[in-house]
């Protein structure tokens, strides 16, 4: 290991004096057991929030509902207000110049622009 790396103590030591169980004992090398962590979705499912009284605040029911206002439609390329919608690429656009641009975009870019607002075609 290089001297400057050692000096900066960049690398976390494997043995920690203050720990009761060391990492290498807890997660032995090459063993996937105990390394699986539930994702947030699974955690929420396991919590069984539906069995709780509805007035009790939980991680799920404190989420904000959708907006009461109609969503602002903005041009996907420029961010201007977008009165138009291109049915072929499904992109919103502000004016003819932007339209020219979106029609010259490759499909890859169109999908990336759509992905920005979570509207891209996802194949499953």
């Amino acid at each position: 290991m290089e001297r400057e790396v050692m000096e900066a103590e960049l690398v976390l030591p494997t043995h920690m004096k203050f720990k009761k169980i060391q990492m290498y004992d807890k997660y032995p090398k090459g063993q996937a057991r105990g390394r699986h962590w539930k994702h947030l979705k699974q955690i929420i499912q396991a919590e069984n929030y539906e069995n709780y009284p509805p007035e009790l605040p939980t991680y799920v029911n404190i989420e904000t509902p959708p907006s009461m206002h109609p969503g602002k439609k903005i041009c996907d390329i420029t961010g201007f207000e977008a009165p138009y919608f291109d049915p072929r690429t499904k992109l919103r656009y502000a004016n003819t110049e932007v339209f020219k641009v979106i029609r010259s975009l490759s499909n890859d870019y169109v999908q990336r622009y759509l992905a920005l607002r979570n509207a891209a075609v996802v194949l499953k």
């Binding site: 989420e63 904000t64 509902p65 959708p66 907006s67 009461m68 206002h69 969503g71 602002k72 903005i74 920005l116 607002r117 979570n118 509207a119």
Partner: peptide, 15 residues
């Protein structure tokens, strides 16, 4: 306006 990035929730002011 979280709907700019496709999140269907209210923004800070509406919250």
């Amino acid at each position: 306006n979280p709907n700019f990035i496709g999140i269907d929730q209210s923004g800070l002011d509406e919250m």
